[in-house]
Design a protein around this nucleic acid. Sequence first.
RNA 1: GGGGAGAUACCCAAGUGGUCAACGGGAUCAGACUGUAAAUCUGACGGCUUCGCCUUCGAAGGUUCGAAUCCUUCUCUCCCCA
Length: 407
Amino acid sequence: MLEDLKERGFFQQSTHPEELAKRLKEDRICCYIGFDPTADSLHIGHLIPLMGLAHMQQRGHRIIALMGGGTAMIGDPSGKTEMRKMLTEVQLQSNIEGMLPQMERFLDFSGDAILINNTEWLRNLNYIDFLRDIGRHFSVNRMLSFETYKIRLETGLSFLEFNYQLLQAFDFLELNRRYNCNLQMGGDDQWANIISGTDLIRRVERKDAFGWTYPLLTTSSGKKMGKTEKGALWLDPKRTSAYEYYQYWVNTEDLDVEKFLALFTFLPMNEVRRLGQLQGADIREAKQRLAFETTAIIHGKEIALQAQEAAHSLFSRTAKSDKSNVPSTTIAEEGFVNGLDILELFLQTGLCKSKGEARRLLAQGGIYINEERIENPVYYLGKSNLQDGEILLRAGKKRYHRLIIKN
RNA sequence: GGGGAGAUACCCAAGUGGUCAACGGGAUCAGACUGUAAAUCUGACGGCUUCGCCUUCGAAGGUUCGAAUCCUUCUCUCCCCA
């Protein structure tokens, strides 16, 4: 089963590889991943851990999703350039509430799976006891040698953040004591934190504990995953619409398609490989499948289909054009009578962030009305632009928006 | 506690009295080429009622005809010593 997930791309490194493989195969083990509630929605950076846990659950293991309500009050310095801004407990709580329903799209908490917040044991921790029981097992010399702190040792690392590792290790120990949890997974940036935990358990409890990290992804051309012109790609449809989400995946680089299918969908590997083998323009089929599957996991099949249809109607020449699912804005006919300033319109529909940007876009030939480029900077939209009671706006190559006129 | 360095636009980073909306790089966006791909080339990249105006260079005051650049105070960060 470890092989299985390795093949899907979920393996970067682990402690005790042979022993871990054996345990995963022969026993039902309990594993956990921590999630820091830094925002009220998950984003695609969380997908690999979520998929990782989901795979474990599907293969019969017991899973724990640990919400880091306590640790997030500290902020993990691993691999970061600077300190994170501190969140209040109220914010953290509401963030957690936003993330929960999203997690349930991946994980089933109806059985013995556990969802727990580490404030439960961190909040009222006694400092002296903690130092004496836990702190004494940590060597500062060793901690300082970890790669994750390298950057921060140059730019500055506060004691507050330096403690993060101890708390995460303590989390693992606590979960081990409570639920006999003996595997922690996470992104490879968590490696140092994870092995601190396994070491602690082995030392204090004299029990087996394992760590397993996932690779940190960049796209083939080296870009960070999940960044768009609007920022992060969120799972919350209020922040990132299903259509945008679909579009992000359909625009995956050729070289990443197979890797992403394996990581971000539950398609069987033979299907993944078949799709990955497609060449040239055919690979679009694979990208559409990827986009559909990933969108369906989060937003449901129905919504994913709508997003797919919207994309088809805009980008496929042959398809019949059902544009009803393309993002749209409706305005009343009265507002339309005197003509609408095109720049103003692009601002209001969110296609541009400012009028300056709209002007620039227009000057560069990136503004299209009903697929026709507009060159005139003082263009007003009127009735003559209407096609079936609506107007199709386009910014650049592929950002579309429908303007619906209602009387 | 003592001494030193620093805070510039999304990020990195020049600039040390006018020629600075601020060099350069990255990111981003647009155009061309394509397959809603990558690479490449070209251009853009604070805001606006855009031949001009307004707001930016950690914060607040001050000097000056004029400051990101000088002075004062404050906030924060880093380094060295204790």
